[in-house]
Amino acid sequence: MAARPWRGTLIYAGAVAVIAAAGFARFAGVQPDGAIAAAGAAGADDSSSGLTAGSTPTRAAAPDTSAPDASAPDASAPEASAPDASAPDAGTDGSSSDPTATAAPDASTGDEVTIVGAAEQTRYGAVQLSVTFSGDSITDVQALQSPDRERRSMEISQQAIPMLTQEVLAAQSAQIDTISGATYTSDGYRQSLQSAIDQRG
């Protein structure tokens, strides 16, 4: 058989043309990021409102997904919302005064403390947790924000976050395994959790 010197390159060129065409066809008419973020800002708030009862002030202060700097809008949050006086733990007071932390100590019973971790930006959106401590143990983790930049991220988050929470409740630390397929979410989750644990001291 005579060699066909450029056939492979031609097939590649055809494949690239098909890939590019598929990309254009699939993504045609999608609004750029800014428009989505602006339109979706209200929606993002709605989606997180169901996650945590009693953290309304924090949620109001939570950065929207388009804001790269997670800590900036939170400066006023603890003062505005947290009933500091009822917090029995002096340590949390100390950490809430830390300007970089997004802590909202918010104790409902004498022994229970809920701390909001830093909002960690991932490529698919922010992860922010509120962690409830009872004594020295972690009793509950709620996601205030999870990656929701696209439909698939939301699906992945919905699967991964409960699994990560299970891991945390078992491990009682941020030393948890990455969920396969949710690498970025897992990373953000770990960091937000660690920041909450660090604030608790």
């Binding site: 890939i19 590019a20 598929a22 993504f27 609004q31 750029p32 930049r149 698939r152």
Partner: peptide, 21 residues
């Protein structure tokens, strides 16, 4: 499998097309 919403960021469209390649 791909959602058109990934293209809301240019990087999302590029990685998605890269996945197809």
């Amino acid at each position: 499998a791909v959602s058109p919403a990934v293209a809301s960021a240019p990087g999302g469209a590029l990685t998605s097309v890269g996945e197809l390649a």
